[in-house]
Design a protein around this nucleic acid. Structure first.
Length: 691
RNA sequence: GCGCCCGUAGCUCAGAGGAUAGAGCGUUUGCCUCCGGAGCAAAAGGUCGCAGGUUCGAAUCCUGCCGGGCGCACCA
C-alpha cells in the first residue's frame, strides 16, 4: 500500500492484484509456456499477469465502490486506487497544520534517549567550511530527532589537547612569543600559527615528496637529473649526497628526508631544481602557443602547479637544516604538558580560551546549541586508567613498545577487518583513541543514553568501528547502540583542503562574504526596512543559504565547495524557500484574522491539490528523516513544498477570490506557511517574514 | 592486497522495487496596471558507467567488470 503517485488525488494505492495474479497464474503458465523460447515465454507471462491483475483490480474496485465508503475506487494498470473525499481530506490536513502550529509534523514521544556528538572542533586550529558541514548536519539531526519525539542530548567534544595543540604552542613560544593579535582575531591567529608549525615540522617531508613525485612522473626532469646533480657537485662538492640522489632517482626508489650527510645539500640543490622546472614550464608554454605537444607528458596546469609548489617551498629553504631540531623541541614541549608545567599550562589555558571565544561566536551566529560540552583534556587521565585496565584484562597488549588492541585476533576473525588499534603512545602520552574510549564509557555510564551517534567525517570510519569493537570486547552491551553517521569531505575546486598547502576556506571568511552579498540584495529589494532588521535578515538568508547547501546533498557524497554557488541565492537554495514563506506572510498580514473552518475545498485546481498533498506528507517525512538520520529528506521536502506554493501563488488569487474559496485559500496559505517554518526550523534555517 | 563510498541531462544534484526518471544552473523564448520578479510559464537536453542475475516489474536489490575518491600501527 502506498500513496497514489498522481497529482490531485488522495488515497491509497495497492499493487496486491499483481501478487495475486502471479500466484494464481504460476502453475497454469508453467505448462502454457513449456516449449516456448525463453524470451517469448517471459513476454507471455508478463502479458497474462498484467491482464489478470487488471481483472482482479476491476473486481476489487467494483466491490469497494458498492460499499460506498470512499469517494471513488478505481482500477488502473492493475492497481487498485482507493480515493478519499477531497474536501474532507483537505480540511483535515489544513486544519491540522493550523491548529497544531509549530508542533505540526511532530512525532509521538519516544522513550529512547539519544546522544548526538557533533562539531568537535580543535582549539588552536581554524574553523573551516568542512567544519560547517559537520555542524549543520549534526544540528539538523538533533532538531529532527527531537521533533520526532526522542529525548536528545546535543554534545560537543572539543579537541583542546593533542599533538596539534603542542605544535601550535611550540611554534608560538619559539617564533611568536609576546606577540598580541587583535582581540577579535585571536582564534584565527592561532590557526595561522598552527599552519606555520605544521609547515615547519613537515618541511623536509614536503620537499622530498615533491622530488619523489618529479622523479616518478616527470620524465623530462629525470633526464635532466644527471646534469643538475653535476652542477650541484661542481658548485658545492657534496659527493655522497649527490650519489644518493642520483641512485634513488635513476632507479625509481623513494628519497628519504633523513638520508643526507650534509645539511646544505638540498638547500643548494633546490634553486637548481627550480631552474629546471622553470625551463620545462617555459618550454611547454612556447609549444602550447605554437599549438604543438611539448616533450613533457605533463599538462601545462600540472607543470604550473609543480612550479608553484617548488616556489612556495623555495621561499623557506633555510628551514631544511633546522627540521630535526624542531621536531625534538616539540617532543620536549609535549613533556612540559605531561609534567603539568605551571607556566605552560597557563599559556595553554589562555590560548585555548581564545579559540573557544571564536567557537562560541560562530555557534551563536549559526544558532547552534549544545547540551553537553566534552573536552579532550578532561579525559586523558581516565583514558590512561582504561588502557591499564585493558592491558590487565588481556584485551590490550604491548606490541613493539606500543599498547594496542589486536581486534581481529580477539574477536576470532580470520579475515582482516578491524585490524589493530594503538591506544597509547609508547612514551605514555595519550592518543585520540585513549580519550575516545574514556569518553564513550562516560557517555553510557553518566548520561544513561540508549543510543550514541557520532557525526564524524567518513575517513574516520574504520577508526570508530575499532572503538565500538573495543567497547564490545570490554563488555559494554551498549556497544551495539553506537552509530557512526559518516559524511564525506568538503573539497575545493582546486582539490582537498589542506591548511599546510594554504588552500582552506575559513568559515568566517565565507560567512562574511555571504552576509555582505545578502545585505546588498536586501538593500536593493527592500531599501525602506530599518537597518538592524536588514542586517538580521541578511544573516538569516545568507547563513540559511550556506547551511542549505550543506544539507541538500547526501552525506556520503563529496561536496565541492564553490564560492560562486554559495553566493548565488537563486534557484534550488534556502532563499527560495524563505521567499515562499515571506510571500505567505505577506498575504496573511492583509487579513485581520484567519477565518475558521471547516473550509470549502471544492473544484480545486491542480496547483491547490498538489500543494495540499505536499502539506499532508510532512509528518511522514519527519519520521523518515529521523529513522534514517537524514536531514536531506527534510531539505528536499521544504524545497518541494515551496515550489508547489509558488505554483499555487501564481495560479490562484487569494485575497481577490470569492467566498468561500477565499477563506479556503487563506487557510491553505496559513497551513503552508506553518509547514515551511517548521521544516526550515528542523534544518536550523530561519524563516523571515520579510526579506 | 583488504575494506568503504561515488558514477543519473553540458554542469551541480534529487530520486522509498511500482505507472510517463525529476529539480537547479547554463542556453533559447515569453510574463510585473494584478496578494513581492530572490518568482512563474515554455522549449531544448537521458542507452540512469558497462555486462549479467533476481523479480510480474530494477536508476533502486545481488554478482562481476570499468572509471573516480577515501581508509588501513603510536595524526585527529
Amino acid at each position: 500500500m502506498r500513496p497514489i503517485p498522481f497529482a490531485g488525488v488522495w488515497g491509497t494505492s495497492s499493487s496486491v492484484s499483481y501478487q495475486i495474479a502471479t500466484e494464481q497464474l504460476s502453475a497454469e503458465l508453467e505448462h502454457l509456456t513449456a516449449g516456448l523460447p525463453k524470451k517469448e515465454a517471459k513476454r507471455l507471462l508478463q502479458e497474462r499477469i498484467r491482464e489478470r491483475a487488471q481483472a482482479i483490480a476491476d473486481e476489487v474496485a467494483r466491490r469497494l465502490t458498492q460499499r460506498n465508503s470512499f469517494a471513488r475506487v478505481e482500477a488502473v494498470n492493475g492497481y487498485v486506487n482507493i480515493i478519499y473525499d477531497v474536501n474532507q481530506f483537505s480540511n483535515h490536513v489544513v486544519q491540522a497544520a493550523i491548529s497544531e502550529g509549530s508542533h505540526y509534523g511532530r512525532g509521538t514521544p519516544k522513550t529512547d534517549r539519544v546522544m548526538v556528538e557533533f562539531s568537535q572542533p580543535n582549539t588552536h586550529k581554524a574553523f573551516h567550511v568542512g567544519h560547517l558541514r559537520n555542524a549543520a548536519l549534526g544540528d539538523a539531526l538533533v532538531r529532527i530527532l527531537r521533533f520526532a519525539g526522542y529525548d536528545v542530548l546535543a554534545a560537543n567534544y572539543i579537541g583542546d589537547i593533542g599533538l596539534h595543540v603542542i605544535k601550535t604552542l611550540w611554534c608560538y613560544l619559539r617564533f611568536h612569543r609576546g606577540e598580541e593579535p587583535p582581540r577579535a582575531q585571536r582564534g584565527r591567529w592561532l590557526g595561522e600559527i598552527y599552519t606555520e608549525a605544521d609547515r615547519r615540522l613537515n618541511y623536509r617531508q614536503d620537499v622530498v615528496d615533491l622530488l619523489n613525485e618529479l622523479a616518478k612522473e616527470d620524465p623530462v626532469f629525470v633526464q635532466a637529473v644527471d646534469r643538475m646533480l653535476k652542477e650541484l657537485w661542481r658548485t658545492h662538492k657534496v659527493g655522497e649526497d649527490v650519489a644518493y640522489l642520483l641512485g634513488q632517482i635513476a632507479h625509481g626508489r623513494e628519497i628519504k628526508p633523513d638520508a643526507f650527510y650534509d645539511e646544505q645539500t638540498i638547500v643548494q640543490f633546490w634553486p637548481i631544481v627550480g631552474k629546471q622546472l622553470e625551463h620545462e614550464l617555459a618550454e611547454a608554454r612556447r609549444m602550447a602557443e605554437q599549438g604543438l605537444n611539448g616533450e613533457s607528458q605533463l599538462s601545462l596546469p600540472e607543470l604550473e602547479e609543480r612550479y608553484l609548489r617548488w616556489k612556495r617551498l623555495a621561499a623557506t629553504i633555510d628551514w631544511w637544516p633546522h627540521v630535526p631540531e624542531w621536531q625534538k623541541e616539540v617532543r620536549e614541549t609535549f613533556q612540559l604538558w605531561e609534567r603539568e608545567d605551571p607556566e605552560f599550562v597557563a599559556l595553554w589555558e589562555e590560548t585555548r580560551a581564545w579559540s573557544m571565544e571564536e567557537f562560541h561566536r560562530i555557534y551563536d551566529q549559526l544558532d547552534i546549541h549544545f547540551d553537553v560540552w566534552f573536552y579532550e583534556s578532561e579525559v586523558e587521565d581516565e583514558g590512561r586508567a582504561i588502557v591499564k585496565e585493558l592491558l590487565e584484562r588481556g584485551i590490550a597488549e604491548i606490541s613493539e613498545g606500543v599498547p594496542v588492541v589486536k581486534i581481529d585476533e580477539k574477536l576470532g576473525l580470520e579475515k582482516e577487518t578491524y585490524r589493530i588499534l594503538p591506544i597509547l603512545r609508547s612514551d605514555g602520552t595519550t592518543l585520540y583513541s585513549t580519550k575516545d574510549l574514556a569518553l564513550t564509557k562516560r557517555k553510557f555510564e553518566e548520561y544513561g543514553i540508549d543510543r550514541a551517534i557520532w557525526v564524524v567525517d567518513v575517513r574516520q570510519s574504520l577508526y570508530l568501528q575499532q572503538i565500538f569493537k573495543i567497547m564490545e570486547l570490554w563488555g559494554f552491551e551498549q556497544a551495539s547502540k553506537c552509530y557512526h553517521l559518516a559524511y564525506e569531505m568538503v573539497m575545493l575546486p582546486t582539490g582537498a583542503m589542506s591548511s599546510r598547502a594554504g588552500n582552506v576556506v575559513l568559515y568566517e571568511d565565507i560567512a562574511g562574504q555571504v552576509l555582505e552579498r545578502a545585505l546588498e540584495i536586501i538593500e536593493e529589494k527592500n531599501p525602506s526596512l530599518p537597518t538592524d532588521l536588514k542586517v538580521e535578515i541578511a544573516r538569516q538568508v545568507g547563513l540559511g543559504s550556506l547551511k542549505y547547501g550543506m544539507l541538500s546533498r547526501d552525506s556520503n557524497r563529496v561536496i565541492v565547495f564553490d564560492i560562486e554557488e554559495a553566493l548565488s541565492f537563486d534557484g534550488h537554495a534556502a532563499p527560495y524557500i524563505q521567499y515562499a514563506h515571506a510571500r505567505a506572510c505577506r498575504i496573511l498580514e492583509k487579513v485581520e484574522s484567519l477565518p475558521g473552518g471547516p473550509y470549502s475545498f471544492t473544484d480545486l485546481v491542480s496547483q491547490e491539490t498538489e500543494l495540499i498533498e505536499q502539506l499532508a506528507a510532512f509528518p511522514d517525512e519527519v519520521e523518515r528523516a529521523a529513522d534514517e538520520y537524514k536531514p536531506l529528506v527534510i531539505a528536499n521536502y521544504v524545497y518541494e513544498l515551496a515550489r508547489r506554493f509558488n505554483d499555487f501563488y501564481h495560479a490562484c488569487p487569494v485575497l481577490q477570490a470569492e467566498e468561500p474559496k477565499r477563506s479556503a485559500r487563506l487557510a491553505l496559505v496559513a497551513a503552508t506557511r506553518q509547514a515551511l517554518a517548521n521544516g526550515l526550523r528542523l534544518l536550523g534555517i530561519a524563516a523571515p517574514e520579510v526579506m
